[in-house]
Amino acid sequence: MNKPVIEVNHVSKRFRTLVKEPGFKGSLKSLFSPKYKEVSAVEDVSFQLKEGELIGFIGPNGAGKSTTIKMLTGILFPSSGKLNVLGYNPQTERIKLAYKIGVIFGQRQQLWHHLPPIDTFNLFSKIYELEEEAYQKRLNELILLFEIRPYLYTPVRKLSLGERMRCEFVASLLHRPKVLFLDEPTIGMDILAKKSVREFIRKLNQHEKTTVILTSHDLDDIEELCPRVVIINKGKLIYDGTMSRIKNQLKYKVLELYFDKKVQTLPKIQHTKIINQTPFNVKVEIDKTKVPIRKVLDVYLKKFKVVDIVIEDPPIEEIIERFYSK
């Protein structure tokens, strides 16, 4: 039970990208004497995962999350270092490994767009070489778990993002993968859809003991689901530990307000900090454990005519920075 199912040992990945100077002259120049620059996407990353773990893999855009996942699934080749997933070398034994893992990329669809999901499920049952009887049993299980019976026969293009993602999960789970890689599974979803996807991930991890690696830039996803978090920034692993230790950093929210006319002096409210101010708008950071967002909002609404309100999490970069400046 407790032997690692995933081992990443000192893995680095460098890409060579073409550097182009601006303008027509630059384009011509790079045509005849191309200049390349080495970009380090992942640098000396090491971690391990035990069976049944559910970890959150976070970091800002371009930090190297997807690159790491793609190396673990065998799509990308590391420049150096060793990977092992379920006893396989993902690069040399990609197809063997593929029978044992499931991968969902939030931004890429594996369901056939113009056909109902059931057609893709049937195809996958053949691709994963499932026995017909076992497949039907598993399919029924998943239909119930993900509540997709109503749209089994509706062309995928007519489904909402949330409905589609549930079908993506079913498609990826037919072969009972031991490890599931979820790359931004909630991207672009509304709150309700996100909530239900999180619920499914939790059920899956608890009932089937599936090991899950979840990347997301939505910290709420991670906060709700993952006891353990790995943070990666600029290709380097900078944190590997419990959620509770960084949770403290998630107590801030950013409130952004837009006014109908120029505003000069702003009220001072305790436990808040103005992080950006222009004549027509202001960004306030609120420590929501000390003062409710609503109270701050009230102060502003009373004093000014507010035309628009946005509430969001501070960017991951800032959370990381704060965590390490302590």
Binding site: K70, A98, I127
Partner: peptide
């Protein structure tokens, strides 16, 4: 576009 990634994670040539 990277769509190839989804087919490379499947046990199919």
């Amino acid at each position: 576009s990277g769509i190839i990634a989804s087919s490379l994670t499947k046990p199919i040539n």
